[in-house]
C-alpha cells in the first residue's frame, strides 16, 4: 500500500507544477481541480488502510468542495469577468519559476527530514510533498500578477496543508476538518467576489495596477 500513497502524493506534487507553468487561468483552475481529485484519492486510500470513517467523509468532501464546487465557481468567474483565453502576466517568468519551484520542493523534503514524526497513517515522503506543495502555493501567489492566479496559489497552499494535516494530525476531530473546509469555501467565494469587483471597477484583474495606496 505504501507504493499507492507515494504515487498519489507524487501526482499531487506534479499537479502543483502544472499550476506553476499555467499561462491561462482556466488551465490553472483545471490543475487545481486535478490536484484536489488526487488529494481525495489519498484520503480514500488512507481510509481503506485504517478503516477510520472520518477519512472517508474527508475524501468525499474534498471531492465535492475542492474538486467540483470551488473549480465550478472559479470557472464561472473566469467566464464572466476575465477573458478565459487571455494569457496572464508573471513577476517571475516560466523558466525561472520552474527552477525556483524545484528548489522549493527540495527545501520541502529537507525540512520534512528535520521534523520528528510519529508515523500514524502516512510517512515522511508524503510529509515532504505536503510542505513542498505549501511552499509552491505561496510562491505561485507571489509570482503571479493576476488576482485569480493568486487565489489559485493560495488554494494550492491550502491543499498542501490538508495533506500535511493527514500526515501530522490524522487524529484531529472531524469537526475541525469541517471548520477548515468552511473557511476555505467562504474564503474562496469572498475572494472571487472581490476579483469580480476588481474587474468591474479597475477594468482588469492585474494586481500590479493596484498601486494607489502608499506610505
Amino acid at each position: 500500500m505504501d507504493l499507492t500513497e507515494y504515487v498519489l502524493a507524487g501526482v499531487v506534487l506534479l499537479a502543483t507544477f502544472w499550476l506553476l507553468i499555467a499561462r491561462r487561468i482556466r488551465a490553472a483552475v483545471n490543475g487545481y481541480s486535478f490536484q484536489s481529485w488526487a488529494l481525495a484519492a489519498v484520503c480514500l486510500v488512507t481510509f481503506l488502510q485504517s478503516g477510520r470513517w472520518h477519512l472517508l467523509v474527508m475524501a468525499l468532501s474534498t471531492a465535492a468542495i475542492k474538486a467540483l464546487l470551488i473549480p465550478a465557481v472559479l470557472r464561472r468567474l473566469v467566464r464572466e469577468t476575465v477573458y478565459d483565453r487571455r494569457e496572464t502576466r508573471y513577476y517571475v517568468g516560466v523558466p525561472s519559476a520552474l527552477l525556483l519551484g524545484t528548489g522549493l520542493s527540495v527545501a520541502g523534503f529537507v525540512v520534512a527530514r528535520q521534523l520528528p514524526l510519529v508515523r500514524d497513517l502516512l510517512g515522511e515522503p508524503v510529509l515532504g510533498v505536503s510542505i513542498a506543495v505549501v511552499l509552491l502555493g505561496f510562491f505561485i501567489a507571489l509570482a503571479r500578477r493576476d488576482a485569480a492566479m493568486q487565489l489559485t496559489g493560495l488554494l494550492v497552499a491550502e491543499n498542501g496543508l490538508l495533506l500535511l494535516g493527514l500526515v501530522l494530525g490524522a487524529g484531529l476531530p472531524m469537526l475541525v476538518d469541517f471548520a477548515l473546509f468552511l473557511d476555505v469555501l467562504v474564503g474562496a467565494v469572498v475572494m472571487g467576489f472581490l476579483i469580480a469587483r476588481m474587474h468591474e471597477t479597475v477594468g482588469s484583474t492585474d494586481t500590479s495596477e493596484l498601486t494607489r495606496l502608499r506610505g
Partner: peptide, 15 residues
C-alpha cells in the same frame, strides 16, 4: 465603499 482604493486595500488584506 467599493471604489478603487478600498478594493485594493481589501485584496491586500485578504491575500
Amino acid at each position: 465603499y467599493g471604489s478603487r482604493e478600498p478594493l485594493e486595500a481589501a485584496w491586500k488584506y485578504i491575500v
